[in-house]
Write a protein that binds this DNA or RNA. Structure first.
Length: 641
RNA sequence: GCCGGUGUAGCUCAGUCGGUAGAGCGGCUCACUCGUAAUGAGCAGGUCCGCGGUUCGAAUCCGCGCGCCGGCUCCA
């Protein structure tokens, strides 16, 4: 007679079953069926295989692909299927790691022979065979010493290294046929449960993410529970390609990056310069409203400054050169200059906080492999500010800066964010007391505003911890946006002081913060978010006038003048081409409004209006249209995207 | 910086076996004066990324360098 255990099912009912039954058997004995799409079981909050014997009483439910843990296990199994396929194609391949990631999975292999993109098809074919074979995935617990022996025997050097680095004992090992992997699991019950998958790319990746170690070969893939979901994923990838700012930017004549000028260096064309100027003007006005003073500092500063700041000893990626025997560095940050403005006179506590704002263009020597369109460049302009205040004022100032950042992001059309708190990195200056204090104040500010965040351990700047805000765009992608950094180091290093109420000298604290991040990156993000179809207030050309024939040009120019004097950015297409083609061209340049002017309009004194958003209307009153435009511009409304 | 891929006209791309370079779009010229997502014809446009090598001969094969793309590491 077997021992009985009590299992509480998801619907609240309870059943008594024999110990050691699997989820499937428990459900069966309770007269229930395994739900369609079940991937994992959850027993008392722990996710386990559907095939795992249940050894103790508890609450049992079933997870599908739609649950985060379900899709993770699903993709993790897909990565094992891929690894098994790779081992069949390349028996010499050594297994490293192969987790599920946000949108799929990868697996890293050590292999002398290189895996090429065109080899992926063959690996996919092998994966299909493994899935068709429907091999059971078996979980085993092994003493660590046995596992080490097992993987040594199989020549899995990386697995042995992993085992030697972990304290767990026993460890779990998953087996499917001839394939064995060290893995915590959980997994699908068998390889046949993987329905829709695709291998996406091959890439290099350092063993354990450490660039001093050897490089492995990584294969990326994704898996879904239905072909439709996979198709949708691939469609979204195509859509992302269509929005790529590296393609749209030059196409919309916003900017270009040319080898002749230099990699990572952006040249703004007239339309891009308009866009950027609109953003800059907006920022200047908003900062003034919030009590920031505009300052301007030079692009190069003496090397000594960067010694004092710590940039030199932190090996910050800078450009250096000499002028008449004197060493200079091109600024990678604006802070030192702002510090010297502060230091230009004796400061009293009644003056604080002091807030200096600069659209500061900085240059950083980014390694060649990391450059990426506008998102990662070597020269960029930050909407940078430094707030100098007392320790007591810091929390309120950080709160204000965070609120300012979010408020501004909403104006630009972003509504969903992820926040990260980055703590002390390995290479840094200052005492651990200071770091702890600074980190606590940032945490306090985040909880003051009940903002949820994750902690990025060791991701802070060398002088202090920071809050990073990531923006979620129209396609659900995340982008690096504002950053708020708390700094207890530079004020000391630069011997900054203020005279307190006690008539003694004190050291102020310093907050570095941006609202958009960098204008280059932000413009790149805006292009992708709006697919180039900017809200009216940002559109480089807001209205394009299309005269039907030459005789309509003069009247069109009059309309243009009226609109321009109302502050609208207007262009006119005087080419001798068909109206259809003029519309097509304006459309392609994503001009929000098109005005057609012909005999009828001149006669009736009206205009015909077309918009990117789909409006198509005749006999529109010009003055009424202009006030509509002005309203849309001043309200800074975002289009539906 | 590292791994892999890639580089032909302003853009997108074709170019066979190594035999001296092509299309579409765009540009320019001409004609057309046109009513809501491509009017027609003609013309111009090339250091085939750069340097070196192999060869009678290189866009094509090899080496090195550079840029770009996908990642890693790094990051606003």
């Amino acid at each position: 007679m077997k021992e009985l255990i009590d299992i509480k099912l998801a619907d609240g009912s309870e059943v008594s079953v024999e110990k050691g039954m699997t989820t499937l058997e428990v459900l069966k004995s309770a007269g229930r069926r395994l739900p369609e799409g079940a991937v994992l079981a959850e027993l008392d909050g722990e996710s386990v295989e559907l095939s795992r014997p249940i050894e103790s009483s508890g609450a049992l439910s079933v997870l599908g692909f739609d649950s985060p843990r379900g899709s993770e296990a699903y993709r993790h199994t897909a990565s094992h299927v891929m690894a098994q396929a790779v081992k069949r194609v390349h028996p010499d391949a050594k297994l490293a790691i192969g987790p599920a990631i946000e949108e799929g999975f990868y697996y890293d292999f050590g292999l002398d022979e290189t895996i090429k993109a065109e080899d992926l098809g063959a690996i996919e074919d092998e994966m299909r065979r493994i899935i068709a074979e429907d091999i059971p995935v078996e979980r085993k617990e092994l003493p660590a010493s046995e596992a080490i022996a097992l993987f040594k025997e199989r020549g899995e050097d990386y697995k042995v290294q992993l085992l030697e680095g972990i304290d767990e004992d026993p460890v779990t090992v998953y087996t499917q046929g001839d394939f064995v992997d060290l893995c915590r699991g959980p997994h699908l019950a068998s390889t046949g449960r993987v329905k829709a998958f695709k291998l996406l790319s091959v890439a290099g990746a350092y063993w354990r993410g450490d660039e001093s170690r050897e490089m492995l070969q990584r294969i990326y893939g994704t898996a879904f529970d239905t072909e439709e979901a996979l198709e949708e994923f691939l469609r979204l990838r195509k859509e992302a390609e269509r929005r790529d700012h590296r393609r749209l930017g030059p196409e919309l004549e916003l900017f270009s990056i040319r080898e002749e000028i230099g990699p990572g260096l952006v040249i703004y064309h007239p339309r891009g310069a308009v866009l950027r100027t609109v953003i800059e003007d907006f920022l200047k006005v908003e900062h003034a409203k919030k009590g920031y003073e505009l300052v301007i500092s030079p692009h190069i500063m003496r090397k000594d400054i960067w010694e004092t700041s710590g940039h030199l000893s932190m090996q910050y990626p800078m450009y250096f050169f000499d002028i008449e025997g004197q060493g200079y560095g091109i600024k990678p940050m604006n802070c030192p200059a702002h510090i010297y403005i502060y230091k230009s006179k004796t400061r009293g506590h009644n003056e604080l906080p002091i807030r200096y704002f600069e659209l500061g263009t900085v240059y950083r020597h980014e390694r060649s492999g990391v450059l990426h369109g506008l998102l990662r460049v070597r020269g960029f302009t930050q909407d940078d500010a430094h707030i100098f205040c007392t320790m007591e004022q810091a929390e309120a100032e950080i709160n204000d800066a965070v609120r300012f950042a979010f408020e501004t992001q909403r104006t630009f059309g972003f509504t969903s964010f992820r926040i990260a708190l980055s703590t002390r990195p390995d290479l840094s200056v200052g005492t651990s007391d200071d770091w702890e204090r600074a980190t606590d104040i940032l945490k306090q500010a985040l909880s003051d505003q009940s903002l949820e965040y994750v902690v990025d351990k060791g991701e802070g700047v060398f002088y202090g911890p920071k809050i990073d805000v990531k923006l979620e765009d129209a396609l659900g992608r995340l982008w690096q946006g504002p950053t708020i950094q708390f700094d207890l180091q530079l004020p000391t290093r630069f011997e900054m002081t203020y005279v307190g109420a006690d008539n003694q000298e004190h050291t102020p604290v310093m907050i570095h913060r941006t609202v958009l991040g960098s204008l280059e990156r932000y413009i790149g993000i805006l292009i992708e978010h709006y697919a180039g179809a900017f809200p009216l207030w940002l559109a480089p050309v807001q209205v394009e006038i299309l005269p039907i024939a030459d005789r309509h040009v003069e009247h069109s120019k009059e309309i243009m003048k009226i609109m321009e004097s109302a502050g609208v950015r207007v262009s006119i297409n005087e080419e001798r081409e068909t109206t259809s083609n003029k519309i097509r061209k304006a459309w392609r340049m994503k001009v929000p409004y098109m005005i057609v002017v012909g005999d009828k309009e001149i006669e009736s004194g009206t205009i015909s209006v077309r918009s990117l958003a789909g409006r198509d209307e005749r006999n529109v009153d010009l003055d009424g249209f202009i006030s509509e435009l002005c309203e849309e511009i001043t309200s800074r409304r975002s289009l539906e995207v």
